[in-house]
């Protein structure tokens, strides 16, 4: 029995990183908020880099609840898109060039989103990870946790439902 020789690590990493930046890079609002994504295998961690414009309470100071709400929603949408495109990225059916083209990636649409503000957001970077609790053909349910200094002390969490884009025959 033989299995195909695994691809060199740089090729695998480069393909995944290029695919991720193709999905994230086309959304102006993600850029406006200064949100980036770090990847380990298929696991994504969103980072919202601190900026003065994210402040909502200048006296404390604290991050604006709206910045946090946006951060959680962005994290959920990218996680969903990433996970539903993953198999096609891995198999090579979708190459990163194609992903970056207009109209190539249809993002899930938010149906509802609930944000639970647990602590006030400090004026520094924030991190978030999303967990897909259910992803069907049409609907998905996603939970997001966000923290700042300590992973175990969440400053916000959110749950949302999303309408998934219809899949083409390419998948």
């Amino acid at each position: 029995m033989s299995r195909p020789r695994p691809e060199p690590v740089q090729i695998v990493k480069e393909r995944r990183d290029r695919a991720l930046s193709a999905i994230v890079g086309r959304v102006p609002y993600i850029r406006f908020l200064g949100i980036g994504f770090e990847r380990h295998g298929d696991e994504l961690t969103a980072v919202m880099h601190f900026d003065e414009k994210l402040i909502g309470n200048p006296i404390l100071p604290a991050l604006h609840g709206g910045a946090t709400a946006s951060f959680l929603e962005v994290t959920a949408i990218i996680e969903l898109s990433w996970s539903y495109l993953w198999d096609d990225i891995e198999s090579g059916a979708l190459d990163p060039e194609t992903l970056a083209a207009p109209g190539a990636v249809r993002l899930p649409k938010t149906i509802d989103f609930t944000i639970d503000y647990l602590r006030s957001g400090l004026p520094r970077d924030a991190y978030a990870r999303a967990r897909i609790n259910r992803s069907g053909r049409r609907y998905a349910s996603v939970h997001v946790e966000a923290w700042q200094d300590n992973r175990s002390r969440l400053y916000a969490q959110g749950t949302g439902h999303f309408l998934m884009p219809e899949r083409d025959s390419t998948g």
Binding site: Y29, H64, G65, G66, A67, S70, E73, V74, F113, I115
Partner: peptide, 8 residues
């Protein structure tokens, strides 16, 4: 526009 902007 992004849902997050409407949330804000």
């Amino acid at each position: 526009i992004h849902g997050g902007a409407v949330s804000a």
